[in-house]
Every structure is written in C-alpha cells, then in structure tokens.
Write a protein that binds this DNA or RNA. Structure first.
Lengths: 212, 212
DNA sequence: TTGTACTCAGAACTAACGTTCTAGTCAAAT
DNA sequence: ATTTGACTAGAACGTTAGTTCTGAGTACAA
C-alpha cells in the first residue's frame, strides 16, 4: 500500500508531536497541523495508516494513537538507536575467524546496560596524559568508572590525593599502611603515599575510545 | 516535599500505563487504578506531584501528563539507564586535573548516540589476537564498526580477504593496485594483497573494553 | 476551643474529542 | 455517459475527560 502525501505528513506530525509532548495528538490537532479542516478526513486517513500497519488506534480513547514498529524503524533512521548487533569475533592476530554472514540478533550489545551494567553510580572521565598507555588507555579515551570508596589490589582506579589535591588514574596497590599508585608506563614513577592520604573516587569498569 | 502513598501509587501507575499504552492515562483511569472515586482527588494529587517537580501537566488537555526527569531518575534505578554523566577530565600523566565536585548534568554521555553516533549501519566485533596491540586494541576488546565498503588510508578496518576467506582487523593502506593491511604490532607482518582480493567490511569507529 | 493546613468525596459543569452522517470532487474504469 | 473507488468537507452528535464548587474529616498548633 502506498501512502498519500497527506498520510505521510500526518505520520510525520504524529512522530514529531509525540517527541515533543510525550503524548499523542488529537484528531483536531493533526488536522490543524496538516491543514485539514474536517476531523472526519483526518479520521479517514488515520484509518488508512492503520491499514498500512503503521499505526494503532484505540477507539473512543482520546489521543489513542501509537506508532507501530514499521513506523518506528523510519524514526530510528532519523536519530535514535538502541542496540548494536555483535556479529562475532574478528582476528587481530593470525587471521582465522570467519566473518559470519547471518546476523545473530540474539547477541545485541545494548551499550547502556551491557557495557555499563546495572551499576548504580557510574560516571565517565576523559583521560589526559599517557601514564596508563601500557594498560591500553590513551589520552583522550573515555573511562567509565563505578563510584566506590574502596578498591582491590590491581584495580585501575581514579584516586584523589588529599595533600596534592589531585586526582589521577592509576593501578591501585595497598602495601601495609601505604598505597602505591602504579602507572602503566615505564616513563612514570609510581606514587607512594600514606593510605590516609588517598581517596578512591571510583574503579574503572570500561574504556571507550572513539577513532576515525 | 514528601510523597504520600497515594501519590507514589499514582506516579507508579502513570509510568506503568505509559509503558503499556504509549500515551498517558486520564484522571478517571488513574482514579480507578488507585481506588479513588473522585476525579477531584486525583486532580488534587496530580497537582501535588507537579509541585514536587515529578510531573508536568498541560491544562485542558486530555491525558496532558508527562513525567519529569526527577521521576525518570527513580525509574532509572528500577532498571534502565540512558546516560552517564561525564564528570570531567582525569590526569593519567602528571596528575594535574582537579576532580570537579559538582556534577555538570549538561555533559551527559549517551552511550547509544554519543559513542556510536548517528551512523546507519553499526555493528560490533569482539577482537581475538593481539596484532593491533600497539593501537591499544587488545584481545577481548569490542570494536564498533560502521559498515562501509570503502576506507581511507590509515583507517582501522575489518577486511575480508577473499582468497583466504578470512576477516582481519588491520590498518588499511591502498598502494597502487594493492592493499597493505598493517598490523599495529611489530611481531606481525603486514598483509599485502591485490586490491580486488580485499573487501572492506567496515571501519572501526570506537573501541570498548570492559575491565575489572 | 479555634484556626489553619492538608486531604478526601461527590456532584455538576464545560470543554475536549472521537464518531458518524451527508454530500461533494475527481480521475479511472466500464 | 455512467459508474466506481479514493479522497475531501462540513456539521452534528454523544461520550470522554479536565475543571470547579461544596462539604467534610483529620491532625496539629496557638
């Protein structure tokens, strides 16, 4: 089935209206927006959109409209995206793995939840400097941290040095009553300070780098 | 301001109702759900929720309700999460940057859109092998690719080698009628093949690594 | 007690809104 | 020329739904 220009306009308006208001428009609001004076004409075209599978209506319910998936796909192209399919593995060493042809939609990476998890207190920091370069963390990378006051040895943490009034990104090691903050770059020396002069600001749980 | 049990129930119902219908409930529907016979009482409590900053109302508009951020935050705790606040920069070299105390909510990382962008065809691959280690891409990392058939010199790409029937992750360089696929690890040799034996599967636009 | 603030109930009022009916236009098919 | 199908217009109707008014119960402080 083909959409008339009016029907296309109506659909667009509904999308835009919902985007703006968080609830669907009334028939009269649609009519006004698309320059249709008659509510029956709008009603007629709405039914056409239902036939086309792009819309659902609940009768006798004000603003009883909802966009269907077909219509949302178009919307997705217009901006939003929820998940990324994980298509498989890729060889970065000796090339071995075969590129899978079929998209396994079961394996979908939901950036928001899969990467960050359900952690309560998560925040991000942009890295400056290269002291963690051997940990494959570069300047400009975004590190995702879970806010927590403690850490285990070997964790990569954001640590606040109370006496220096600085925060730095390092590997954390508790050694007796002192803390060693170990960079991952031989050009930098570890920072060793009394344990009571270090405040853990959070532990790195993910690293994100944009390239290209 | 504290919410009464009724107000909490109303808020929950509105959330649930919108989740289910994609449009907000009417006052009478709320009343029925929360066992309030009088529309004025519902109206009264809705106004309280507006005062509390959890709701917005549009007067004289049917179903003119919208949840505000405050209310959505509670929702986030219930499972879904959209954005991660970017709190600032962190020093990984010489520690310089001060950790900001105030959360600048303006700077929010929406993983879905900010990292991936508005690209049309995006997918992810998990990396196996260490040939890109000098590019700070480790085995186990997740690379986000934009599906595209072409690439520029220097792009990190997933390349399909037609004769070997392999896909590999390398830097791309077109040299005359041949393509050089350059690893970022001195232990590996570049792959040089005729251009017609290489199919670009996509270009890496982001790298994600989970740690901890 | 008295007064005030807060909450609730019921009913009535009015505007909002979906539905339906009649009728008209226009192009393509018969 | 007539018919048919797709679309449009306007108006009227009846339900839906937000608003408002009256009245009352409760808790708390002066």
């Amino acid at each position: 089935m083909n959409l008339s220009e009016r029907q296309q306009k109506i659909l667009d308006f509904i999308r835009q209206y919902i985007e703006e208001h968080d609830y669907p428009p009334t028939i009269r609001e649609i009519g006004q927006a698309v320059k249709i004076s008659s509510t029956s004409v709008v009603n007629y075209n709405l039914d056409k959109l239902v036939e086309a599978g792009l819309l659902e209506r609940t009768s006798d319910v004000s603003r009883g409209l909802r966009l269907r998936d077909g219509a949302r796909v178009l919307e997705a192209a217009a901006g939003r995206r929820r998940g990324i399919p994980i298509l498989g593995h890729i060889a970065a060493g000796q090339p071995i793995t075969v590129f899978p042809e079929s998209v396994d939609t079961a394996d979908v990476l939901d950036l928001a939840t899969d990467v960050v998890g359900r952690a309560e207190e998560v925040y991000a920091l942009r890295v400056q400097g290269d002291s963690m370069i051997d940990a494959l963390v570069d300047s400009g990378d975004l590190v995702i941290l879970n806010y927590q006051k403690t850490a285990n040895n070997g964790d990569m943490v954001a640590a606040w040095l109370t006496d220096r009034e600085e925060t730095t990104l390092k590997y954390f090691f508790l050694e007796g009553d002192r803390v060693r903050l170990q960079p991952a770059n031989p050009n930098y020396e570890p920072i060793i300070v009394p344990a009571d002069q270090v405040e853990i600001q959070g532990k790195v749980i993910a690293i994100i780098r944009r390239v290209g």
